[in-house]
């Protein structure tokens, strides 16, 4: 379970997250929507400790992310992350991209790591591309590679940071399909997204962020069908 209590984040004097309170249960799919600059992505970075926070309590399975004694590298193994820019490692083949972290972080044997990698690549539909370098893959394939790479660490949670925003429109579908598949398998997911269809169909809950504040959270039927906050109504009217 991820528990966030009164989380504040500043970039210099810019107050980007203004006291976020949020719990995400095991098995839940939460979509986070809102305009650019509303702090959605920063929230993900704070959950896995890639961004320091000024005041918070972000707790993952009982471990405080930002506490001094926390082994952040160990904690991150629980939190798979997929970025907007897929960030595949260009000097490694698809298989090596996925096998590297299980090998050097988890200490799996080379053969074991490669087996896990092959399995995960097959899982996201890249079973034919094991020995291909990222430069020969499309954006959608590279993003699925990034998903496989995160899954190979056997995380309890997956954080998606606008996983489809940098893709050509015709490639968005394959990545959303993969995310949908993960959701159906019961993965706990926090998806920062601009894909309203995905948020509505796949999520258990949808959170709307506005200027660093979580304005509204609830089941998709409520957020999309009967939004309470004025800002939510305005945002949804604009994106539709």
């Amino acid at each position: 379970m991820i528990e966030i209590h009164d989380l504040h984040k500043y970039f210099g004097s810019l107050h980007v997250l203004k006291g976020i309170n949020l719990n995400v249960e095991k098995g839940e799919v939460l979509s986070v929507i809102g305009a650019s600059g509303s702090g959605k992505s920063t929230l993900l970075y704070c959950i896995n400790g890639l961004e320091p926070v000024q005041q918070s309590n972000a707790v993952v399975d009982g471990t405080d992310v930002h506490a001094k004694g926390t082994d952040i590298n160990k904690l991150r193994q629980q939190l798979g992350m997929v970025f907007q820019q897929w960030n595949s490692f260009p000097h490694l083949t698809a298989l090596e991209n996925v096998a590297l972290a299980p090998k050097i972080v988890k200490g799996k044997s080379k053969a074991e790591a490669r087996e896990i990698a092959a399995q995960q690549l097959k899982h996201v539909g890249l079973g034919e591309k094991l020995d291909v370098y990222p430069s020969a893959l499309s954006g959608g394939q590279q993003q699925r590679l990034a998903i496989a790479r995160a899954l190979a660490m056997e995380p309890e949670y997956m954080l998606f940071d606008e996983a489809t925003s940098a893709l050509d429109p015709e490639l968005v579908g394959e990545v959303l399909e993969t995310m949908r598949m993960l959701a159906e398998e019961g993965m706990t997911m926090i998806c920062v997204t601009h894909e309203m269809g995905f948020a509505r169909d796949v999520s258990d809950r949808v959170a709307f962020f506005h200027q660093g504040v979580m304005e509204e959270i609830g089941p998709p039927e409520q957020i999309f069908g009967n939004p309470q906050s004025e800002h939510t109504q305005k945002f949804l009217a604009n994106v539709r």
Partner: peptide, 27 residues
């Protein structure tokens, strides 16, 4: 080499040394 390569490495649980020697320096 973009900083995002380091972020991606760290998000997989690699420590700074691993991210540098396995991901950044080869590039």
């Amino acid at each position: 080499v973009p900083d995002t390569q380091i972020r991606a490495s760290r998000s997989l649980g690699m420590n700074a040394w691993q991210a540098y020697t396995r991901i950044v320096i080869p590039q």
